[in-house]
Design a binder for these strands. Structure first.
Lengths: 127, 127
DNA sequence: GTATCACCTGGAGTTAGCTCCAAGTCAAGG
DNA sequence: CCTTGACTTGGAGCTAACTCCAGGTGATAC
């Protein structure tokens, strides 16, 4: 599969796909005789994984390290697991923060709804 | 309250507090006779609000717009509500993405745990 | 009275993560 | 054969959100 199709399928620009490969976030993709990338199934799974991790905000740097460990084989399994565990905790923490914000937004929206009603009858005062 | 104490209380650097004021994300804080900022209760609540929103990733630009509307008074209530609603939805969407990633991480970690056990007995193969 | 310290300002510098660009190659269509 | 269009590269440019810095002021401690 050529880069354009991969780009389309995962909604990642070709520039970004090439960039990811350049920085070692995606392992070097095999080329055909004329030097054009031809993504195979494994490449696609890797792209999807990276897309998923990036969409949640995991830093590129950490992912590069993880991908590097994957390439070094079995003896890095422990290290990889530790990275995933750490990132999992950081992610959970961020989500908790976001939940607080979501709650506050819901509360504020609610206050605004009432304010609009109240305003129709007279006084309001919101910050 | 002086900027250093505000910085300490909310874990926001004094540089960032001044920066927020410069760009209009926080309304101009009153100064004492010698030009030094003296945050009052309302200022603190505003700082806390901004901190909360920023911690969830709401863009500075959007927050500036919101804060600007607050300053313009009651006739902007509808507009403010719409901003909050939109940001609420975007936030919920991001959290959903993150939940997917969290699930995948949990699954991977689980696979790794098993791999470590299996490895002790012989074969492994994880990507 | 002078050293220290927290504060002030405007502007420059930094970081992460892309995103764009120029210049070049190659395969296919007319 | 020549154009078109998708691909290639290395490197420059961009955006958001800080973060740092130089140079200056004013209050307090010694």
């Amino acid at each position: 599969m050529k880069i354009a199709e991969v780009s389309e399928r995962y909604a990642i620009s070709t520039d970004t796909l090439r960039y990811y490969e350049r920085i070692g976030l995606i392992q070097a993709v095999k080329r055909n005789e004329s030097g054009i990338r031809d993504y195979n199934e494994l490449d696609l799974r890797r792209v999807e994984f990276i897309k998923c991790m990036r969409s949640a905000g995991l830093p590129v740097e950490v992912l590069i390290e993880y991908v590097g460990l994957v390439q070094r084989g079995d003896q890095t399994i422990e290290a990889r697991k530790e990275i995933l565990k750490e990132q999992r905790e950081l992610l959970a923490a961020r989500m908790k923060e976001m939940q607080k914000t979501l709650d506050l937004l819901d509360h504020k929206i609610d206050v605004y709804e009432n304010a609009v009603l109240t305003k129709e009858k007279g006084t309001v005062q919101i910050e």
